[in-house]
Simulated assay, not measured.
Amino acid sequence: MPDLAHNLEAVQQRIARVAQQAGREPRSIALLAVSKTFPAEDVRAAHAAGQRAFGENYVQEASAKIEALADLRASLEWHFIGPLQSNKTKPVAQLFDWVHSVDRLKIAQRLSEQRPDTLAPLNVCLQVNVSGEESKSGVAPAEAADVAQQIAALPRLRLRGLMSIPEPAGSIDEQRVPHRLLRELFEQLRAGGLDLDTLSMGMSADLEAAVLEGATIVRVGTAIFGGRDYSH
């Protein structure tokens, strides 16, 4: 097992340094530890080191992990961040606190219908395909305002903001471009009357660029848990 406490501290220091550079309060940027493909024991160790929010991509794996960590449920925050198929929305609606990867209205409608009344509204972000890649999920920027308005009107959901997974880029200036596009779209939606507070953008390789452009949640896996083994 990697030294999760050390790795978490190192990532928090990265966030703090770039937040200072941007004139931002480090506490305004939440760290989401992306625990996909890593065992429940690693999540438990990260929790013991003070981490509370965890991101998962795969419904079946996440469901088993959430069950294995049921004793920590009151102090864990589970975020679904992967592509979500229509036939997999029910367990996500029942088990998670956040869904970052709402990439079409149909998914939001199913989450709304399947969210139990006994739970708090499900926090959701609209995924935007800022780089225009055919292989990436997300609504086109030109469609985001209309879809966001429709999602915001659904019961048992709370539209919190926008999420993106931009195309990898080399320099920090190049990395900033798609994050800037998402922030500008976020500001347009807020100006249009939507009550949004979340920009979910930035990962291990580009979190500095994302924070400089206004990220409020950065999704970091490799820098915390190490490299992933997808063979299983």
Rank of each mutant, 00 (worst) to 15 (best):
S75Q: 11
A48V: 04
R158Q: 12
E187H: 13
V128F: 10
W78D: 00
F80H: 05
Q12H: 12
L84E: 04
A53I: 01
K90Q: 10
A48G: 07
P39D: 01
M1D: 08
S86W: 04
C125P: 08
R73N: 12
M201V: 15
C125N: 10
D97N: 02
Q127I: 15
V139H: 03
V130F: 04
F54L: 02
T198F: 13
N123P: 08
L76A: 01
V218P: 07
S171H: 06
A148I: 06
R115M: 04
R44W: 03
T37N: 08
Q51T: 02
A142N: 09
L95C: 03
L69S: 00
I107L: 08
P178Q: 13
R27P: 09
R190H: 13
I66N: 00
K136G: 06
A33V: 05
A210S: 03
A40M: 02
P168I: 07
R27K: 14
F225E: 03
F54Q: 01
V92D: 08
V43K: 00
D206Y: 03
V34R: 05
E134Y: 09
N123M: 08
S35T: 02
Q21T: 13
E134S: 14
A33W: 01
C125M: 12
P168C: 10
Q109D: 05
F225W: 07
E134R: 10
A144I: 09
G132K: 10
S137Q: 09
A120Y: 11
V34E: 06
L69K: 00
A152G: 15
R183M: 06
I224Y: 13
F38T: 07
V130Q: 03
R183Y: 11
A120V: 12
M203I: 13
A93C: 13
G226C: 04
G202E: 02
L189P: 03
S164L: 05
L76Q: 01
G161D: 05
L196T: 11
N123D: 14
A33M: 05
F96D: 00
E9M: 15
Q12N: 14
L4R: 08
T198S: 15
E184F: 09
W78V: 00
L196F: 14
L159T: 08
S137G: 13
L84R: 03
E113C: 07
D146C: 14
A209K: 07
A74T: 06
Q85N: 07
T118A: 15
F38A: 08
L185C: 04
L126Y: 11
A210L: 04
Q150E: 10
V92L: 07
A19Y: 03
M163R: 12
L154N: 08
S86Q: 07
A108Y: 11
P155I: 10
Y230S: 09
P168M: 10
N129A: 06
L105E: 07
M201P: 11
K65P: 01
A30C: 12
G132L: 09
H232E: 09
G55H: 02
A64Y: 00
L84M: 04
E25C: 15
Q114E: 11
I172C: 13
D117E: 15
R176K: 09
Q188H: 11
R24K: 13
A145M: 14
R158D: 13
H47F: 02
I165C: 07
Q150Y: 07
A53D: 02
V18M: 04
R14A: 15
I151C: 15
P141R: 06
P178S: 13
I217V: 10
D117W: 10
P26S: 08
K88H: 09
V34K: 05
N57F: 03
V124Q: 05
E61N: 00
D197Q: 14
K136Y: 06
A215T: 11
L8I: 14
